[in-house]
Computed example of a mutant assay.
Amino acid sequence: MTREWTQADTAGFLRVPAADDDKYSRGVVVLRTGSAAYPGAAVLSVEAAWRAGSGYVRYAGEAADAVLARRPETVVGSDLGRTRVDAWVIGSGTDASHRSEGEEEALRRILAGSAPVVVDAGALDLARGATAPCILTPHAGELARLREQLGLASGEQSASGDQRIAEVVETAQTLGSVVLCKGSRTIIAAPDAEPILVSNGPGWLATAGTGDVLGGVLGALLAANSGKPLAEIAAAASWLHGRAAAVASGSGDGAVGHPIVALDVADALPLAIGELIA
């Protein structure tokens, strides 16, 4: 059995700030994303975390200059373990094969902490043994590599339907973490829970960098929804991401729409959120 996630489901993870809210109560997200080779991933993930409603965003990666040029309100600095963190986002725009010993040590500390972590791209190989609550966000190719690392039957990138769902469920059970497999139909599985499907994103969403945007959205919703099931937070973030893409591309209500780039999706997040909380 699977559950199809809806707009109504998503609305429960968003709220209008109250008079007694401050920047901290709206959620503190820290991102260790991007690299010298891929600074854009840092910009996109940070932008999305802000646009999805975070009250306080810190950046602790290698692309601080690019991040500050786009979002000067971002607080820059690693400061691991000494400042409040409601959610981490790590790995987007990084390559495990080029990771230094110091960087690996920092990532392992994050994964051994208590704050929930969105684990993407170049950090997926470190997910085994993590004790922090984690949401892993592989695409099909990354899922296949992750399964091989775990000693599971090698996943096929072309797998679809029940086979792909079964692979995501098995991976989540093996790791004891939530796994969100990105695609035209996103599959979210948690250990011993019914898989969730999210399929509201338009075809225009299949463009470079949109996964980095999703990482930022996930971080924002994780930080703002402490205590709620991680798989449901992941589903809400995925649905919101798809809706923002529809808003950006003009493809809602049956319209064909038009091409977009990843930053368009991030920019459309406030409008998509406004629809849900109106």
Rank of each mutant, 00 (worst) to 15 (best):
T2E: 12
T2I: 14
T2L: 10
T6Q: 13
Q7D: 10
A8T: 11
T10C: 12
F13W: 11
L14T: 06
R15N: 12
V16H: 13
V16R: 15
D20S: 15
D22W: 14
D22T: 14
D22A: 14
K23E: 13
Y24F: 15
R26Q: 15
V29G: 04
V30F: 06
R32N: 06
R32C: 05
S35T: 08
G40F: 09
G40S: 05
A41E: 01
A42V: 03
V43L: 09
V43Q: 03
L44W: 08
V46E: 05
V46I: 11
G53R: 05
G55S: 13
Y56R: 06
Y56G: 00
V57A: 03
G61N: 03
A63F: 10
A64N: 05
A66V: 07
L68S: 10
A69R: 13
R70F: 11
R70E: 13
R70V: 09
P72R: 06
E73G: 15
E73Q: 15
T74Q: 02
G77W: 04
S78D: 11
D86Y: 08
V89D: 01
G91Y: 01
G93Q: 04
D95W: 12
H98V: 08
R99E: 15
S100W: 08
S100H: 04
E104C: 10
A106C: 08
L107V: 02
L107P: 00
R109V: 03
R109S: 11
R109H: 08
I110N: 00
L111V: 08
L111D: 02
G113W: 02
G113I: 00
S114T: 15
A115D: 07
D120S: 04
G122I: 04
G122Y: 05
L124T: 01
D125Y: 09
R128G: 14
A130N: 01
T131S: 15
T131L: 12
T131V: 13
A132V: 06
H139K: 12
G141Y: 12
R147Q: 09
E148C: 09
E148V: 11
G151P: 14
G151I: 15
G151V: 14
L152P: 09
A153C: 06
A153L: 11
A159N: 05
Q163R: 15
I165F: 07
A166T: 08
E167G: 02
E167C: 03
V168L: 11
E170V: 10
A172T: 09
L175V: 07
V178H: 06
R185Q: 14
I188T: 02
P191L: 10
I196K: 01
L197C: 14
S199W: 03
N200I: 10
L205I: 05
G209H: 02
G216H: 05
L218Y: 05
A220S: 13
L221Q: 06
L222E: 07
A223N: 05
A224K: 00
A224L: 06
N225G: 11
K228V: 02
K228H: 09
I233G: 00
A234Y: 04
A234Q: 03
A236S: 11
L240R: 07
A244I: 04
A244H: 04
A248V: 02
S251K: 07
G254I: 10
V256Q: 13
I260V: 12
V261A: 10
A262P: 06
D264K: 04
D264C: 12
A266P: 03
A266T: 05
A266F: 09
D267W: 07
L269C: 12
L269I: 12
L271W: 12
A272R: 01
I273V: 15
